[in-house]
Design a protein around this nucleic acid. Sequence first.
DNA 1: GCCAGAAGATAACCTGGATTATAGAGGTCG
DNA 2: CGACCTCTATAATCCAGGTTATCTTCTGGC
Lengths: 226, 226
Amino acid sequence: MDKMGCGVSNRDNNMGQAAPLGEDFAFFRPHQFLAREGEPPDGLFHLQEGWACRYRLLGDGRRQITAVYLPGDFCEPYWILGRLPSQPVVALTNVRAARMPCRLPTGAMTDGQKRLWRSLGESCERQASWLVTLGRKTALERLAHLLLELFERMRRAGLAYGQQCALPLTQMDIADLTGLTPVHVNRTLQSMRARGLVELQAKWLRIPDMQALRETAVLTPNEVLA
Amino acid sequence: MDKMGCGVSNRDNNMGQAAPLGEDFAFFRPHQFLAREGEPPDGLFHLQEGWACRYRLLGDGRRQITAVYLPGDFCEPYWILGRLPSQPVVALTNVRAARMPCRLPTGAMTDGQKRLWRSLGESCERQASWLVTLGRKTALERLAHLLLELFERMRRAGLAYGQQCALPLTQMDIADLTGLTPVHVNRTLQSMRARGLVELQAKWLRIPDMQALRETAVLTPNEVLA
DNA sequence: GCCAGAAGATAACCTGGATTATAGAGGTCG
DNA sequence: CGACCTCTATAATCCAGGTTATCTTCTGGC
């Protein structure tokens, strides 16, 4: 299998030390799942040989890979943050991996530290979602995602009033968030207004039809916005 | 300042509990830095009021915002992973924030856990870099970034041989990583080959001129690829 | 209330990358 | 060895979003 050098090298690379007898290994073939969305993973994998990747698939077949795992990598470090995988992981080649427990000791943490810990997990997940949005979504979908996310986070912070909240961003800020130009943000917002998807003026956002905006954003069913 | 509702609400939002006397607060005006690239932050901020964002600026003025912080958010949770900020953070509005220590207890960790911890930090950082690449870079720049990163990671894993390493990805995988179509990946790779930037065939990558490829990828000077 | 600079709106035109189609080159498994 | 399938290559056409330019409307400072 290693004629291509995808696996561990012969020379000692001080990443994959020799497995102690009885260590728990797992093997995967290309396209096999190391973890599925929303399901507790079998364990944390320390890749010995082969490549894997994490990705998200949109309903219409668009796919964005959000991480690659090479030999020596842990798959997937985010799992220690105590959340269920929000994106599946599959093998790209034949894979051999050491399986290890998935948790870091959070027992000793204060409440404040736990809150910070949770916040770290949410940040990682949001970032992974935005990779999909920036890599694969249209201007309209990007804006819908952004506005929904900001509203939802404001709501959770107790700062939304009904369907409305403050949104102190310029169109240029929005452009730099969504990877678009200010001109195109303006154009697209106009068309969203025209279709009754959002009202946005004077740094104030109103979402008349939450469901319509959610559909516009083509989020994964259980995609977290917080 | 709060006529827009950007700050904490009047009702109890159970995020920002009343500050104990003597708690350390910080205030920022729009465009003021909460943290600069490569400099140890003053502390971890728990935002009470106002918005902030993290971003990266490319040499030619392209900017990608990679995170927004709203009232109640911690800024920036990644900092507890013990790395210096790789992207600056600025206030978008007037900001009031509680300042707190920046570390989680890593003393009790085993070596294995520390390695995992480090790996988590690298993943977060890589992901933030890819937000910039997917949001703001051209096809050529994206491919250069990807190939450099994969080579560099293979090298660190002891799996590179001189300027070469295995790269068991199809052009379709590369497309799904870079947010492009397979056709355009092929076209762009052809033109990179023609210019002597890379050699890529039979799942094997060779980088004849590392420096040229680095420049093509428009990375930030101290941008980490591992 | 006035002014200056920032932000929003809009139109005309351009281009990087998407789309669609077809053909050849490997790889792999009988 | 040949059949099949996946991957790579390449050309032609199209379009979402970028670029440039101008004008208007806010906003904050005095």
